[in-house]
């Protein structure tokens, strides 16, 4: 009996280990802008279907780290990267990586909502269309699902041909998330997604993140410590290009191991 109990405990622990296998893993990641060393030896493990927050003062490299996870830094001239970033165990900086496939899997939401100057429908259908879906009915289904995902369907279902840039900032940001969910990524990177929003809208987007967590792995960069404490499961604190501390959000905010983390969280600098 006792033996059996022990055995079942072990298998459930094993199962748990398997379901929480890290979705993204950076290994000794270093990044340079020209001669500026922006990221120093970053080792980070992001777990599946959890929200991981990156916090730290401006210029600490948190956005740079985020953009390293879907290779958006490639757009900047003079960036050099050493080390590895593994998504599902595969190093995305390996020569010959399919960038299109990578970014379909690892999508990004930006600081300022950036819908295209098109209709609401065309914004969401943009990705699926380019990836080969031409059938109008199929596209309509995708648009409905994507808008439902961000809780905009009921509000906008009769206004799909409206110009997207006439929406409120919050709705624009939701639309951008819907545009992303239309191509069904597995990971969503959010770069200060609420910094352009008012507190009420911020709260609603945070609620949306909890919903999205069921289906997506989320990494969020935020300036707002309360936000990180509220929404995330794991928190990483960065300072001057280093990942100073990384752990369960509760632990990082209540009993930080590092002195610098404690100083930042208690507001001694930032």
């Amino acid at each position: 009996m006792e033996k059996n109990g022990f055995y079942s405990m072990r298998t459930s622990a094993l199962r748990k280990l398997k379901t929480t296998m890290s979705k993204i893993e950076t290994k000794n990641l270093d990044l340079f802008y020209g001669s500026f060393h922006a990221l120093l030896d970053i080792n980070l493990e992001v777990e599946e279907k959890m929200i991981t927050a990156l916090i730290g003062p401006s210029g600490c490299g948190k956005s740079t780290l985020l953009r390293a996870l879907n290779r958006m830094n490639d757009l900047i001239e003079g960036v050099r990267i050493t080390g590895e970033v593994c998504v599902d165990g595969k190093n995305i900086y390996e020569h010959g990586t399919d960038l299109i496939g990578l970014r379909k899997k690892v999508g990004m939401v930006f600081q300022r909502p950036n819908p295209f100057p098109l209709s609401i429908f065309d914004n969401i259908a943009y990705g699926p269309r380019i990836h080969g879906i031409k059938n109008r009915g199929e596209l309509e289904g995708i648009v409905q699902k994507a808008l439902s995902d961000v809780m905009l369907w009921d509000v906008l279902k009769d206004k799909l041909d409206r110009f997207a840039l006439n929406l409120s900032i919050e709705q624009q940001q939701r639309l951008c998330i819907a545009r992303l969910s239309a191509i069904t990524p597995e990971i969503v990177l959010m770069d200060e997604p609420c910094s352009a929003l008012d507190p009420m809208a911020t709260q609603r987007i945070e609620e949306l993140m909890f919903e999205l967590k069921k289906n997506y792995t989320i990494v969020i960069v935020t300036h707002n410590m309360q936000q990180a404490a509220r929404v995330s499961d794991k928190t990483g604190f960065m300072l001057l290009g280093k990942l100073v501390e990384y752990g369960d959000t509760k632990q990082v905010f209540t009993t930080p191991h590092e002195k610098q983390t404690e100083e930042y969280i208690t507001g001694r600098y930032g």
Binding site: M72, R103, M108, F110, N114, F116, Y126
Partner: peptide, 15 residues
Amino acid sequence: VPHSFREASLALGVS
């Protein structure tokens, strides 16, 4: 043309 349009598109896995 704003840079953010290009970023948005590239981040959707568009070449």
